[in-house]
Design a protein around this nucleic acid. Structure first.
Lengths: 135, 135
DNA sequence: ATATTTTTGCAACATTGTTGCATTTTATGG
DNA sequence: CCATAAAATGCAACAATGTTGCAAAAATAT
């Protein structure tokens, strides 16, 4: 059973191409990287494809401090099929390496955070530093 | 001694107006809110003013999941004058209230996070839920 | 194979942000 | 206070990123 069937997304040549770019990159990628990789395809279609993937929970969006925006495959994310990407729960920390500039999803137990008087539904953590490969 | 002198930023009518918008809003605001508040001023100047404020450490930028981008005054941030906004250290958590949609800087001790093999220089935490006022 | 639904591509547009340059404003120093 | 230097402003033009409506094409279902 392929990823398309599992997530109820139609399998098209274009979408397979986009998905391949994700598989070919270990860490998260930018929309620009996808555009370069798939060649002279229509930008609109790509944006819609990404939205479809996001809605299906196939990928997730990472917004790092400094307006670094990336996309990454969801491997271990807890999500239902209709959950909006913005409220998507991750069991990992998004790590931005200052050296190789990669944004990496590091599997890690999220710390328990309690804010007096606040009801916390989800938490996102972004870290910056030097990644394991660059150290 | 005013905030301009302290941060070595020139005091102009325009900048005072922009700063007032920050003071008039308890929590973080969007560039759009500032544009509306200050009236028909030049957008370019506003962008440059914001950049100046960011560089001076007067305000900081908050990027929340779902492309919510906000600006907030820095009250308790640890930063030097030349430190870039992206690497700005906060002692608070950015909290997005799902009800009032405000993005609030909640003063809180940041949890100690240790990632095996990674060198962590800074951490940003975003939480989502219901804020104290809305509960 | 045909009908239905979804995806794609095009054109046009909207938003957000940037750069260069001339002008104005603010601060500085006699 | 006036001249000068430095910085901020406003304009025009541009660039990047993302969206909408609609017709054509492709994929799925009958």
């Amino acid at each position: 059973m392929g990823i398309f069937e599992k997530k109820d997304i139609r399998k098209t040549a274009f979408r397979q191409k986009v998905l391949d770019v994700f598989y070919q990159n270990e860490n998260s990628i930018t929309i620009g990287q996808i555009e370069t990789a798939i060649g002279k395809h229509d930008r609109i279609t790509l944006y819609r494809t990404i939205k479809t993937f996001l809605d299906a929970g196939l990928i997730h969006e990472i917004v790092m401090p400094g307006d670094v925006k990336k996309l990454a495959l969801c491997n271990d994310c807890e999500h239902g099929p209709n959950e909006h990407a913005a409220h998507h729960q991750h069991n990992h920390i998004h790590f931005h390496c200052a050296q190789c500039q990669e944004v990496i999803c590091v599997d890690n137990e999220l710390p328990n955070i309690d804010l007096e008087g606040y009801q916390i539904d989800s938490i996102e953590i972004q870290a910056r530093g030097v990644c394991a490969s660059c150290l």
